[in-house]
Write a protein that binds this DNA or RNA. Sequence first.
DNA 1: CTCATTTGACCTCC
DNA 2: GGAGGTCAAATGAG
Length: 287
Amino acid sequence: MKHHNSRHLPQSSPSDHPSFASDHGSAMKEIARGQSLVTQLRAIVLPALQADQRCELVAQMFQNILDCSSKAITELQLQHQSDDDALVDDKKRVRRISSDDCTKEEGATANPRHQHKRRRSDDLVSLETPVPHYDGRQWRKYGQKHINKAKHPRSYYRCTYSKEQGCKATKTVQQQDESTGTDNPVMYTVVYHGQHTCKDNNGVDSGTDESETNTQSSSDRRSSISITSTDPCDHQISLGDNKLIGKSADLVTKSLYEPLNMNPFAPLDLDCWELDALLRFQLEPDN
DNA sequence: CTCATTTGACCTCC
DNA sequence: GGAGGTCAAATGAG
């Protein structure tokens, strides 16, 4: 594996399919860019609002913004997929099918522990962020590895609900080597693998296929902000990190596509809740 | 006691 | 064979 900073999409790259690139690529790119910027903004705002009771409201509004753009991206992806089905002679795809179905499956069934395979590069998404843990998801660390020629170790996380709900989403977090200067904020390369098929603590279905009515009351909702790290190299922005927060506002993400909230059919039943909360806070602006 | 993290071993892929 | 990814026992925190 070489470098995670290149842009990735869960499906094959738009650049592989000129028709798609011309029809949908720029639109998806712009939507995804907006999504990524919103995610970055959320990562900056939410830590600063931790002690504020509006935190939950703000978090939910961010979530809804991301849901909207996710829907748009998914629509474009679905259109693209129908075109993509015809293009099955992709070399990587052929290689993946042959190695997965034939060569390795026998060994995997013979010994369950031999199931872990090196990840494929076609379902990963990378981004650079100063706040690798405030991504709206809950993660459990399952490994850490020193990477060759890297100053900092790479941490491996999987979805907290991987066992309970079989969610296969994982991510790796690695501090960038060049972010050691005093003026530059510490930056991390976060690489997401797979998509969430679980429901997070908000009761929001984060999978791609399930659509289930969310009847959970607002009082039952809990924040699902990921605060998972105890890793000494994985710094988090705290309320006191104002310098970092200020500088982070200028950061431009390099991700094309934010996988965290790629739930195209998540029920957006929060409008009433939002309006109610907004009215409440307008009446009580300093609470 | 429970659960998350750490860490060395082991695995697959290149 | 080296590098990257995952497992699982050990460890520690709450």
